[in-house]
Each structure stands twice: as structure tokens, then as C-alpha cells.
């Protein structure tokens, strides 16, 4: 595609788009520092809602549970997603490959209510017939999150693997490294940035999920989105704005770190043309 200076048209399209995307977030952040109880009337600068947020044991507990689940789910999803990507990119054809790719791509678009309901019914049926899982909680949320995050991770890693020249892996074999060693010494280091962004993606998806977690959670495993949801259902609260600001801050930092990593690896791992 032609590259160069943006035309006036392009600039105005982008301005409108980005205004639409960022204005609500900006408003959210501004009003998190509002003194007033009313979310929409400015009454002076204050950190009071942040204080209240950090004194709310329910929110803090839910945040802790969500973080634990997100870290564990993202890690497992990266392992499964990497395996799935290798299967799709490097293994050639095998029986049931179509079914395999369907099961990888379908969760990307599956409405959450369906995924949530179906997993809950599975856990109930398993509990009835196998006696496991005995009760629903962090474990069942973890399983559910791993399942749908794997699909997203697989997409990220697959596109990186496709760019990777096959002959680099062949060269490693040719020089005497057996396949498993090729994977750990050559493939993995090269696709590491993709694994990193896959992990971050899975982490945010898990941290963000309300619907599926609501279906498969049990007593005592209220996640952060569930806590937020029940709080905003009661009505608007500036405390949520404070939380939102923190989440946005964390996400921005994470994205910048990921971006920095990606840029750096782009500089050091892609073989550029003759110089």
C-alpha cells in the first residue's frame, strides 16, 4: 500500500475515530479525581475515591482472585496455544485437522453466553457422573478461561510462525539438533515476542471476562468484573472510575512494554534486505 504523508481525509477519519475511542476513557479518568459523589458534576480535585477503593475488601479480594486466575490461565493458554499453532503451521495434514482448526477459530467469535452456559453444564454433568469438579470456583473459571484464551493465543502465535522461514529450523536440524532441541534453541527464542504478546492478550481477556466467569464461578470465587458489575448495577459510583483509571494505567504500561519488546525484537530478529 502506498505510504507517505497522511492526506487531509485520512487525518480527519483518524481524528474522528480516535476521538470516539478515547473521549469516554478520558472522561472516566477525569471524573475519577472528582470530589463529588455525582459522577458527572465536577466539584474539585481529590484522591478520595482511590482511598475508598483501597479500603474496599470485596473489591480487593475480587481483584486478587482475578489476577491469580489471569496469570494461571494466560500461562496455560500460551502452552496450549503454542502447541496448537505448531500443529496448524508445521505438522502438515492429519486426520481431523479440519475439526481441529474449527475448534481453534470458533471460540474467537462464540457469544460468551453460549460458551459460559455450555461449560457450566459440562461441569455440572461431570460433577454428577465423575464427582469432579466437586464445586465450582477458581478451578472451573481457570479451565474456562484457558479454553477461550487458547484460541486467541493460537492466532497470535500462528501468524508469527508462518512468517518464520522453515529453513531456519531445518538448518538447526542439519547442524545436528534433534527436533525437540530445535524447538527450544531456535523456534522458541525467535517466536518469544509472540508468546509474550499472546500471554498479555490472554491475561487481559481473562481479567476482563464477566459473562463466562459468572456462569462457571461458585460461591467465594467472585472475580473483579463480577464485583464491578454488581456494583454498577446498583448505580454509578466514582469508586469504579478510580478502578477504571488504574486498569487503564496498567493496560497502557503493559501495552507500551509489549510494544517496546516487539519493536526491539523486530530490529534484531527480522532478516532485512541487503544494506
Amino acid at each position: 500500500m502506498q505510504t507517505g504523508k497522511l492526506s487531509t481525509w485520512s487525518k480527519s477519519f483518524l481524528s474522528v475515530g480516535f476521538f470516539f475511542l478515547y473521549a469516554p476513557i478520558l472522561i472516566l479518568v477525569i471524573f475519577s479525581f472528582n470530589k463529588s459523589d455525582l459522577v458527572t458534576v465536577w466539584a474539585g480535585f481529590s484522591f478520595k475515591w482511590y482511598g475508598e477503593l483501597f479500603r474496599d475488601p470485596q473489591m480487593l479480594g475480587a481483584a486478587w482472585i482475578s489476577l491469580k486466575i489471569a496469570v494461571l490461565a494466560a500461562s496455560a493458554a500460551v502452552v496450549l496455544g503454542t502447541m496448537a499453532s505448531i500443529v496448524m503451521v508445521r505438522m502438515g495434514d492429519f486426520k481431523g485437522k479440519t475439526a481441529f482448526t474449527s475448534m481453534i477459530t470458533a471460540p474467537l467469535v462464540m457469544p460468551e453466553v453460549i460458551t459460559g452456559l455450555s461449560l457450566l453444564l459440562l461441569f455440572v454433568a461431570m460433577g454428577q457422573s465423575l464427582g469432579w469438579p466437586g464445586e465450582r470456583g477458581m478451578l472451573t473459571i481457570w479451565i474456562a478461561h484457558v479454553t477461550f484464551c487458547t484460541a486467541f493465543v493460537a492466532v497470535v502465535i500462528t501468524s508469527r510462525l508462518q512468517e518464520l522461514d522453515d529453513s531456519i529450523e531445518e538448518a538447526a536440524q542439519d547442524l545436528g539438533a534433534p527436533p525437540w532441541k530445535v524447538f527450544f534453541l531456535v523456534t522458541l527464542p525467535i517466536i518469544a515476542p509472540a508468546l509474550m504478546s499472546g500471554w498479555l492478550l490472554a491475561f487481559t481477556l481473562s481479567l476482563d471476562d464477566l459473562v463466562i466467569a459468572s456462569f462457571v464461578s461458585g460461591p467465594g470465587s467472585t472475580t473483579l468484573p463480577m464485583a464491578v458489575f454488581s456494583s454498577v448495577r446498583m448505580g454509578i459510583s466514582p469508586q469504579i472510575n478510580a478502578l477504571a483509571t488504574l486498569v487503564i494505567l496498567a493496560a497502557t504500561i503493559a501495552v507500551f512494554i509489549a510494544w517496546w519488546f516487539a519493536q526491539r525484537s523486530l530490529k534484531s530478529t527480522t532478516v532485512v534486505g541487503d544494506d
Binding site: 522461514d165 529453513s167 531456519i168 531445518e170 538448518a171 538447526a172 542439519d174 547442524l175 531456535v186 527464542p189 525467535i190 534484531s268 530478529t269 527480522t270 532478516v271
Partner: peptide
């Protein structure tokens, strides 16, 4: 037997 690949296949990392 060792091969020199067409793309050279040097390990970028």
C-alpha cells in the same frame, strides 16, 4: 552432511 540454505537460514537471535 551439512547444508548451506538458499535463504542462508542464519539464526536471527
Amino acid at each position: 552432511v551439512n547444508m548451506m540454505f538458499q535463504s542462508y537460514a542464519l539464526f536471527p537471535h
